[in-house]
């Protein structure tokens, strides 16, 4: 993560010229703060309500019927949920791995070399991010249909569950994740000091040694950030999975969408709560992996 140049700090502004100006500045600051407080309440209120009502001992969501772990208990014995969960994880892990490798290589090519068609490649890398997922889902649906790949499943046995994950879903996830990984890793590469690589080569390190001992370790925070982003996006995805999997295939998100369409139940709240906790854990893990939790949580150079 890069450090940003110093921001306009309140202290650095020139002293206010009169009392009225000072008062106005104070009032403005208070307005800004209360605006921020309200926005953060807006951001967290739905999630808090979601979590609280996952412990509600009543089928009717708006009525509080006492606290219970009943819905979590129901989830534990639900094989459909288990299948959906493992499908999600299987797709996320696999597509993250593939797209992280491909995306990292692409980032190195784009940032460290000049070659013919680089501009076109740049556009090709940006397009999957720009195009809305519904359009991308349609594109892939037609393509898999037309090419005859269809929804052929990959059959694997995992923890006693017989998964059948369509190749098309994994391919779909890779194709939207490559770009995100490439952009994150590229931002990291752009930040790195080339002198170190040049120094390594001056010391007679060959390309492979330079890559393995200098470039890769320095790129690592970017690669980890890109992989975590890819993993999150894969777990998050509904539309592309839905369109490239055929009927009856559930990931966690697709399963929850099906339940929500039938109605609101505390059971959905329980699954949702677990999903929120899971992503919180991921964010925590990301913070730990990057500089032991210090540093900016967002790379401003991405924007």
């Amino acid at each position: 993560m890069s450090s940003s140049p110093s921001a306009p700090e309140a202290k650095q502004r020139p002293p206010h010229r009169d009392l009225r100006g000072a008062l106005r500045a104070h009032l403005g600051g208070m307005l800004l703060s209360s605006h921020a407080v309200l926005l953060y309440i807006f951001l967290y209120l739905p999630i808090v309500v979601l979590v609280v009502f996952s412990f509600n001992d009543s089928r009717f969501l708006a009525k509080w019927g006492g606290a219970t772990f009943r819905w979590y208990g129901e989830l534990a014995g639900d094989t459909q949920v288990a299948y959906a969960l493992w499908n999600s994880l299987f797709i996320a892990v696999l597509s993250t791995f593939i797209s992280t490798v491909i995306g990292t290589l692409a980032a190195m090519a784009m940032e460290r070399y000049r070659f013919h068609g680089q501009l076109a490649m740049d556009a090709l890398l940006y397009l999957p991010i720009i195009i809305p997922d519904i359009a991308m889902a349609i594109m892939l649906l037609i393509w898999f249909n037309l090419s005859g790949v269809g929804f052929t499943p990959w059959k694997v046995e995992l923890f006693g569950l017989r998964l059948a994950v369509p190749y098309s879903v994994i391919i779909g996830h890779v194709s939207f994740n490559i770009s995100f990984v490439a952009i994150v890793v590229r931002a990291r590469l752009a930040d790195m000091d080339r002198a170190l690589e040049e120094a390594a080569q001056d010391l007679y390190a060959n390309s492979w040694q330079t890559f393995r001992r200098v470039l890769l370790p320095m790129m690592m925070p970017g690669i980890v950030a890109g992989a975590l982003l890819a993993f999150t996006l894969s777990m998050d995805d509904f539309v592309i999975t839905f369109f490239t999997s055929g009927a009856g295939f559930n990931t966690l998100t697709v399963y929850v969408f099906g339940l929500v369409k039938k109605g609101v139940t505390p059971k959905i709240n329980a699954i949702s709560t677990l999903m929120v906790v899971f992503s919180l854990a991921l964010v925590g893990l990301a913070r730990l992996l990057q500089k032991g939790g210090e540093g900016a949580p967002v790379d401003v150079d991405l924007f």
């Binding site: 309500v49 969501l61 777990m235 929850v256 929500v260 609101v264 999903m275 992503s279 919180l280």
Partner: peptide, 29 residues
């Protein structure tokens, strides 16, 4: 920034569903 990003990193469908509990016409909170 972290507080801004935490909800953002949670599942989009889940975040949208969370509003159902609050907004629904007759049974919304």
């Amino acid at each position: 920034l972290l507080a801004l990003m935490i909800p953002f990193w949670s599942n989009f469908l889940v975040r949208t569903y969370a509003w159902l509990t609050l907004l629904r016409t007759n049974t919304g909170l």
